[in-house]
Simulated assay, not measured.
Amino acid sequence: MLTQDERDVRKAVRDFVAAEAQPYVATWFEEGRVEDLRGLAKKLGNLGVLGMHLDGYGCAGMSATQYGLACVELEACDSGLRSFVSVQGSLAMFAIWRFGSEEQKAEWLPRMAAGEAIGCFGLTEPDHGSDPAGMRTRARRDGDDWVLDGRKMWITNGSVADIAIVWAHADEGIRGFVVPTSTPGFSATEIKHKMSLRASVTSELVLDSVRLPAAAVLPEVTGLKGPLSCLNEARFGIVWGALGAARSALETALEYAGTRSQFGQPIASFQLTQQKLVEMGLSLSTGSLLALHLGRLKDQGDLRPEHVSLGKLNNVRAALEICRTARTILGANGISLEYPVIRHMNNLESVLTYEGTVEMHTLVLGQAITGHAAFRSAP
């Protein structure tokens, strides 16, 4: 069902991951750091996957389906690797590409596409996740300048970023700002003690009277439409990427079941193990067909936000269940980093709730089905 170009993209990313990340990712996860992340970013830039679905400014201009296939291969290695590419391209770069000025695009997008500049996306706050409209970060005018104050939490790439896309309340509504991280008053601290997405940098951003010129604001959007449309781009990648983690877990379980012998025969020969493998394969196949369908819709310009909610809700939940089931097939070995299963399982616990929790995507679909919004309780 894939074109030759799509297969070529899949193979290129799979080969890259096998050479540049797969041999090291378990160590990165165990140590909670990615060695030479900037070097890896430049290699990803050379591969062409950073902002690969955007046109112009050094971006590859590939299709949504090609981007989705790349996400599968990246997350088959680790969710942290796919998250890096997703935040760089679908959040930070997309915000500039879609809502930025020509000067902002020319200054940042070529460098970000090449992996020479790293971006992050500051929306979530310590007390505001699912309800971003309640954010406390404020932007006020001071002459021709803007001054930003606030905090952002759980920000991928934050403490290694060269540029942050920060969303804040202003008098006219929520506005987005392009914030060089070298700006006085901006600081980012890496969040430690994570048990998930350990091969990924996660940070808290602090904006303490960060003064920006008028040219720093994203001129083409006001209101929540801006950040939410960016999130929709990133969620589309998750619809695909989660399947990569699931595929890796299923392949590991299948190989293990064929070589692990109990009661004088491989456990793959037992009915209950076969049932597990069949259910895992069924979920992976249906999720893959759904992702491909949504990719074709996006390439045709027919994809709606509720379609993405459907895909994210189904595919991440299915992927997590596949990983949990794979863990049972591996038994005690399933918790060892010698195998990828527990790493994928832990990562997907975060993927399940970031960029829209199960509850929020359920309510998006509930509204689409019934016509009634149930995001807030009745007074």
Rank of each mutant, 00 (worst) to 15 (best):
S63D: 02
P305L: 04
S283L: 14
S187M: 08
E204I: 12
L330Y: 03
A19W: 00
A326L: 09
S63Y: 03
T156G: 13
S196R: 15
V351W: 00
L228R: 12
T27A: 12
Q367R: 12
R304W: 03
M360H: 13
D131N: 13
L224N: 06
A113S: 15
T252P: 00
I238H: 13
L207A: 10
K192A: 13
G334T: 12
H53G: 01
A234D: 09
L330R: 08
S101R: 11
E6Q: 09
L54A: 01
A60Q: 13
S309G: 03
R296V: 09
P132M: 09
K298L: 06
G371P: 00
G68F: 03
A245S: 15
E172P: 09
K225Y: 04
I118R: 09
G58P: 08
M195N: 15
A242Y: 02
E204M: 15
Q88V: 02
L352N: 13
S309V: 03
L207T: 11
D55Y: 07
T222S: 13
A216Y: 07
Q262I: 08
L292K: 13
V25N: 06
W154N: 15
E255G: 15
A199K: 10
Q274Y: 04
L44Y: 02
S182R: 14
L348T: 04
G51C: 02
G51S: 06
I118D: 01
V217T: 08
R98S: 05
S83E: 11
F263A: 00
L284D: 03
G51E: 03
